[in-house]
Structure formats: structure tokens, C-alpha cells
Amino acid sequence: MNKFDRAIHEIQTMDSMAERDQWVNRIHPLVKLFITVFYIATVVSFPRYALTGLLGMCLYPILLFSAAELSFGESLYRLRIVLLLVCAVGVWNPFFDRTVYAQIGSFAVTGGMVSMLTLMAKGIFTVLAAYLLIATTTIEKICYALRLLHIPKLFVTQVLLIYRYITVLLAEAERMSQAYALRAPGQKGIHHKVWGTFLGGLLLRSMDRAQELYESMCVRGYRGEFYYGNRQRVKAADIAYLLLVAAGILLFRFVPVFEVVGSLFV
């Protein structure tokens, strides 16, 4: 399996996960979208030295991974590049902020170290929350939820079509790279001299394919608005889930739960 094949496979795997019949998948997409945005906003709102409080926010992804029966290891592997980038964001903080924050034996923990870890944790949690949303909700349902929020249809349709066209682009790239590899035995990858032609060809072919897909939509009555099938109603269970999770998030945001629990044993 080459890189393009793997990428297509990853997208297909995400689609399959989102279409499973788990109870998390059945929650109304608007509720999941709201909770995700609320969670991300709450995580981001933690002060830069509030590492202990922030760690409590890891409960949400952990519980959701468990409830959705998603493999944590596979997910981390899938997100490895994004997570590395996210972790790299605060990597310079220890060099700029050298004020001693705490002392562990002879080791001085500086404010920079704490803020770096806080930034990393924030990045990891927000990426995981977004991942959990798309792993439990199909792109059509996410777009449906966005439309319920009156996000302009132009924007929502763009999101949906870009998602669809990514696969088209990858499939074309895969075909071209296979055709190249079969006629360039022994070569590793695509020779840099051919990159221009390759990318130009890829662009033209992808545009042709995208045009055909669009024509296929037009001849089937598409007039700029996607219709997302059954208007799923928000049920009592969805509201209960929303209230419970939102309350949990607020609790961990405004009450130092770990300190309170710790004080019980001191």
C-alpha cells in the first residue's frame, strides 16, 4: 500500500467509524458539535499555569474513547503528526520564562516548563475532542448540525465538498504515482524533475473529476443546498447528555477537583 492508498484508507476508516451504531454515534449531531466547541473553548480558557486543573479535562476524551469503543493507540498513531506539531507550540517557553514555579528536591520547575506542559495539554485535548467528533459523526451529520446553527449554506457545502474532493484528489494521485512507478522501476518516489509535470497533471485530472462529480450532482437536482435526510430530533437523552457533560466540563473548569480530593486525604 503506498502513501496515497494509506491516506484514502484512513479517510475510509474514519467514515466507517462515524457510521457505526454505537450510542455515542446516535447522539444528535448538534449536541455533539455544541459539546465539542464548548469543551475546546473551556480547555483554551485555562490560565497558562493551571496545569493541575487542566489535567481534569482529560476525563472527557478518555470517557468518550471508552464509550465509543475507539482504539486510543490507533487514534494516537493516526494523529501523530498533528499532535507533534501541537506539542511543538510551547517548546520554547522554558527558555523565555525562567521564574521558579516550584522546587522538587534540587530540581527547579520553572514557569516556562509549566506553561509549556499546559500548552501541550491544551493542544492534545482540543485535537482529541475534534477527532472524537469526526470519529463518531459523519461529515453529512456535522454539516447538518452546522446548517441547524444557520451557518451559511455556501460555507457548509464547501466543507462537505472539500471533504469529498480530498478522496478524489488522493485517488488521482494514487493512479498517477502507480503509473509512474510501473514505468520507473527501482526509483524511490517521484523524481524531483517530474514534480512540476506530475502536480500539473494531478491538478488538471482532479479538476476534471471534480467537474464530473459536480455535474452528477446537478443532473440529480442539486441547486446549491445539500439535504441531509431524516431531520433527527433532539431527544430527552440528547439533552440529558448535553447537560451532564456540560456540567462536568464546568465543574472541572471552576472547581479545583484534584485539590479538593487531595485535601480529603491530607
Partner: peptide
């Protein structure tokens, strides 16, 4: 269409077959 890959674009069969009736 001649090429089915250019015709089918939704995630599953049901959604694709339902695309036109929903648009109407």
C-alpha cells in the same frame, strides 16, 4: 455517467440513491 466513480459521491449506497429525491 460512463464512469461510476464520477457519479457516486455520498458515503453509502442509501444516501447516494436518496440524493435526487431529497433534492426534489
Amino acid at each position: 455517467f460512463q464512469d461510476s466513480d464520477s457519479q457516486l459521491f455520498m458515503t453509502n449506497v442509501y444516501e447516494d440513491v436518496a440524493f435526487a429525491p431529497r433534492n426534489y
